[in-house]
Each structure stands twice: as structure tokens, then as C-alpha cells.
Design a binder for these strands. Structure first.
Length: 503
RNA sequence: GGUUUCGUGGCCGAGUGGCUAGGCAGCGGUCUGCAAAACCGUCCACAGCGGUUCGACUCCGCUCGAAACCUCCA
């Protein structure tokens, strides 16, 4: 299929045609989690956003190398225990090795991302495994004359950089503003300019995460790892760099500066940023103490939650919003997502499981919105609309809207036994296969563990119930239905007989 | 204060210079022993004030309000 994929490039603040540097290959780097806490809803947003990008690029036929890092070195904790990084701090509190913490939370992260049906990236490098690359990157920047050493720490020279390059290009910031608006920290006494950022920090004696370097025993600055690892696995220049909007400044801005000096190029062609999750209109974040972990969502064990929400409900909820919009959490919105997803999946079950409806070369399917005779089936139109939506900066909400129109058609056909062509029926199945399962990455949670025994038993039970219904023995009939309900098996009597499914 | 972004119906959320978003909820029907589901119909919008235009929810300006970033954060 001829595709013209447009994606919004933060660098240009415009939608641009996606033209990879080396087709058919596509390289994508996304900033991954710092593994010092349980994964929460905020972690799910970029994971799902770039999973969608990954899946769609693959669907279009690109050979994608998707790199997402694990930050297990930790970043500077500015407010207290100066210089001590997050992972080390947590390790000290919990009396374990820092790597034990990193391992534990990395495992937790994978567990919950798997539950959300987020595909594993091609490579998941760890910052701690790339200290050598980071040290050599610092050296390159020093050699180029854009960094300076003070007391064993190395800082990037923003002032010098700004004479030739534009620091603030990605985030739209101006250096003078940075100068006047940067908070004064004690550590900044070492810096020549308040906007300078650390490339290497000398470790204090009590700091347990440390590596030897030409300058001191210490640890790398927090912008360094992404530059080092993206270069290592994707080359000096690659196609897409992704991450949360909160990383725009200073993290991504500094990555650009580092690459510009060390490699003489801007690292990524397209910069993509997902927006934040809000809770009561406010950002959900660790420091705000208002975050809800994924485990809490899946179990319902949190005071803000009225009930548990399944992984696919969370995934669907996020895909119903565009990735560049903020998405506000509420129980009401999640319940709506849950019901909508069920409607989508039930229609799919009907499509593949029910006996074929009346097929007829003269389809009764008409576009309800337009009396015009189409040159092609309205179902083909919906199919095209799905591609058009994805090609327009991954507009998953519009894909979902088209899918619901398909649901409407499926229900009408089966409910009223309207005629449909064999081709249209196949097209519907194909549309669901590609968009619902392959691209949106949704799974059917309703009918996961049905066995042949269950099918056989249900046949038997429903036959007995049918007999009681024929003799108008409603007591027995309802008793069976109620008992099955308690086992989470829902029985529905329709015109064409009785249906059932496991909830 | 600066930077970026946003303000859509009861809720969540797309989109567009004139033509239906979609989901959930509500209301009225159809179907049904009842229930559920489904189907048909229906109500509720584009923060406010100006401007451009034949026409603006959509473009421009102002006002009000909100958020993120500027400090670790997805």
C-alpha cells in the first residue's frame, strides 16, 4: 500500500512526511524508565505511544530497530543528599545492592508492559553497561573544546556552544532567559554558566554507584546515556527520537548539543513527544504523590479507584486519545473505555464465531451518512479511513471511530440478517485483524481460556435450559442463567438462539 | 516572569472555513416470558469579546481560565 505517513516533528513544530534515512530500515530511540519505582500510568503512556509507532512502521514494511534504554545509573537528586542518585538512595534505604533495586524494578517494568501488550523493543540497553561509551563521549566533547573540568567533574560549556549553535532550538528557549531564570544551586558554583550541565560528576565518598574515569571516580551526567547508547546502536544519525514532553528540556535539548559537538550532527531527524497523563487536571508524577501504579489499576487497590481495570482497558483508554494530547484520568472515563472495548470485542466474536450471515452479491450495506452510490463498499471506505488516520500522525482515536462504525455494520448485519457480500465479510475480518490486533495491539480478554470441555458442557446445559424454556418453566430457566452468571458466564437469549460468553 | 500547549455537549475525547466524529451516560421506541445484548430515533457543544470572510467552532487579535517545562520526573 502506498503510504504517506506524516508525523509531527517537535523540531519543526510541523507534521512532516516520514522519509527514513536508509529505507527500508528505520531507527527509533525512546527514553525508557529509570528503574527505581513501580511502573505507573505515566510509564504506560510513552510505552504504548511508541509501541503504536513501532507496530505501524512494521506494518508498513519498514525493518525497524527500536531501542529503548533502561536507566539504572540514576540521575542526580538535586534537593537532598546532594550528588546521591535515585537508585543509590533507594538502595541505602532498603539495605540492598543498587543493582538489586534496578533489577527488581526493571523486571516489574517488563512484567507490566507485557501485560499491556507492549512489544519488547529490539534492544533494551542499560546505562550501567555503557559507561565506557559515555566516558569516551565526554572525552570527545572535551577534546572538541566544549567542556571543562572542575574538581573531577566535567561540565558542558553552553556559552561557547551558543556562539555557533542554537541551544534551545528544540524547546524554543532563549539562552538569556535560561541565564536569568535558572535556580541557583550550590553545585553550580563549579559551573562557569548556570545553564551548563554535568557530563561527569565526581562521586562523594558515601556515593556507592561509581566508576573510574580519567577525571575522577564518579558517574555520568544524566543526558549522556541516551546519546551514547543511541549512537552505539543506531549510528550517528537515526530517524525517530521519542520520549515524554517533560523530557524536552533540558534532556533532549542537551542530547542534541552533545551529539552536535561529538558527532557534528543532529542525532535524530524526527523528534516525537507524547503528552502527559493528568489526574484531576494535574500531572501524575512521583514527586506529586498522586500517581497510581499499574498494579493498583489491575487490582483496583487504590483509594482513587472504584474498581479494577484490566490491562486492555488501560491500553484502549490511552489509544482513545491522541498521543500529543493530555489525557485526564477518571473512573468514569475508564469505565466508558471498558464498555467501549467490550463492544468492539463482542462484535469481533460475532464476526468470527457466528454462522455466516446471508451473503449476497448485492450488498445491503450502505453508508448511512450518504445516499451517494459508492464506487467501492463503505467497508472499504472505513478501511481506507483507518490508514488515513494512522498516516496522519498516528491518529488512533480516529482509527477507533472507524472501527466502531464497522461494529455498527456488523451488528446490523447479524441482528437484522441483512445481506452482505462475501468480499465485505472478509474485508471486515481483515480490518479487525490488522487494526485492532496488529496495530492497536489490543487483545481479546473476554474469551481467553475456553476449553473444548467448556464448549461441550455449555452446549449440554443450554440444551436442557432450552427445553425448560419451551415448556415455559421459567423458574428452571432463570435458575440456570443465574447460576452461570455467578460463574461469570453470561447467557443471552436472541432471536436465533442463545449465546454465551465468559466475562 | 519566560517557553510550550490547551480551553468542544452530563463525562471522555477527535476533527474541520460551509457537509455525521466516536465511545460512555440520558430520553423515546423495536425485539424479548423476563433479563441482557442489539437495532431505530432523539436531546445536550465548540470559554468570552472583537476582527477577517458571502459564511468561523475552525483564521487573526484581545480578555479570562488551565496545564506542562524552566529543578529529578514518562
Amino acid at each position: 500500500m502506498e503510504s504517506r505517513l506524516l508525523l509531527y516533528n517537535t523540531l519543526s513544530r510541523n507534521k512532516e512526511l516520514f522519509e527514513p534515512l536508509n529505507p527500508p530500515f528505520a531507527g527509533m530511540y525512546v527514553c525508557g524508565p529509570t528503574v527505581y519505582g513501580d511502573p505507573h500510568l505515566g510509564h504506560a503512556r510513552p510505552a504504548i505511544t511508541f509501541d503504536l509507532v513501532f507496530r505501524y512502521l512494521q506494518h508498513l514494511g519498514y525493518k525497524v530497530r527500536y531501542v529503548r534504554n533502561i536507566t539504572d545509573v540514576g540521575h542526580l537528586e538535586a534537593d537532598l543528599d546532594e550528588g546521591e542518585d535515585k537508585i543509590a538512595k533507594k538502595a541505602r534505604l532498603e539495605q540492598v545492592e543498587p543493582m538489586e533495586i534496578a533489577q527488581y524494578y526493571a523486571d516489574r517494568y517488563f512484567l507490566y508492559m507485557d501485560a499491556l501488550n507492549v512489544k519488547r523493543p529490539s534492544i533494551e540497553p542499560r546505562a550501567s553497561g555503557h559507561i565506557i561509551e559515555q566516558i569516551s563521549l565526554v572525552q570527545q566533547i572535551l577534546d572538541a573544546g566544549y567542556a571543562y573540568e572542575v574538581n573531577g567533574s566535567v561540565y558542558f560549556d553552553i556559552e561557547k556552544y551558543s556562539k555557533t549553535y542554537q541551544y534551545g532550538r528544540l524547546s524554543g528557549r532563549v539562552l538569556d532567559d535560561l541565564l536569568t531564570n535558572t535556580r541557583n544551586l550550590e553545585a553550580q558554583e563549579e559551573k562557569h554558566h548556570p545553564a551548563d550541565f554535568a557530563l561527569w560528576k565526581k562521586a562523594q565518598p558515601e556515593h556507592i554507584m561509581r566508576w573510574p574515569s580519567p577525571w575522577s571516580d564518579g558517574f555520568p551526567g544524566w543526558h549522556l546515556e541516551c546519546s551514547a547508547m543511541s549512537t552505539r546502536y543506531l549510528g550517528l544519525q537515526f530517524d525517530i527520537h521519542g520520549g515524554g514532553m517533560d523530557l524536552l528540556f533540558p534532556h533532549h535539548e542537551s542530547e542534541i548539543a552533545q551529539s552536535q559537538i561529538a558527532n557534528r550532527v543532529t542525532p535524530a531527524k524526527y523528534w516525537m513527544h507524547n503528552n502527559m497523563i493528568t489526574i484531576n487536571g494535574q500531572k501524575m508524577g512521583k514527586s506529586l504523590g498522586n500517581f497510581i501504579t499499574l498494579e493498583e489499576f489491575f487490582t483496583g487497590n487504590h483509594r482513587e479507584l472504584l474498581k479494577a481495570y484490566s490491562p486492555m482497558t488501560i491500553r484502549f483508554f490511552m489509544l482513545q486519545a491522541h498521543y500529543r494530547s493530555t489525557l485526564d484520568f477518571s473512573n468514569e472515563a475508564l469505565e466508558a473505555a471498558e464498555k467501549g472495548l467490550k463492544r468492539l470485542m463482542t462484535a469481533y466474536e460475532i464476526l468470527i464465531k457466528s454462522p455466516s450471515p446471508q451473503t449476497d452479491p448485492r450488498s445491503a450495506i450502505r453508508d448511512p451518512r450518504s445516499p451517494i452510490i459508492h464506487r467501492q463498499s463503505p467497508i472499504a471506505d472505513l478501511f481506507d479511513a483507518c490508514y488515513a488516520a494512522m498516516n496522519d500522525d498516528f491518529n488512533s482515536p480516529m482509527v477507533i471511530a472507524s472501527l466502531f462504525e464497522a461494529v455498527h455494520i456488523i451488528n446490523s448485519v447479524y441482528d437484522k440478517n441483512e445481506s452482505i457480500t462475501v468480499e465485505e465479510l472478509d474485508l471486515l475480518k481483515k480490518m479487525f485483524g490488522i487494526f485492532v490486533f496488529d496495530i492497536l495491539g489490543l487483545k481479546n480478554e473476554q474469551s481467553s481460556d475456553q476449553s473444548v470441555y467448556l464448549d461441550g458442557l455449555m452446549d449440554l446445559i443450554l440444551k436442557i435450559r432450552q427445553k425448560s424454556r419451551e415448556t415455559k418453566d421459567w423458574g428452571t430457566s432463570d435458575q440456570i442463567r443465574d447460576a452461570l452468571n455467578k460463574l461469570h458466564i453470561v447467557v443471552k437469549d436472541g432471536k436465533e438462539g442463545t449465546n454465551w460468553n465468559v466475562e
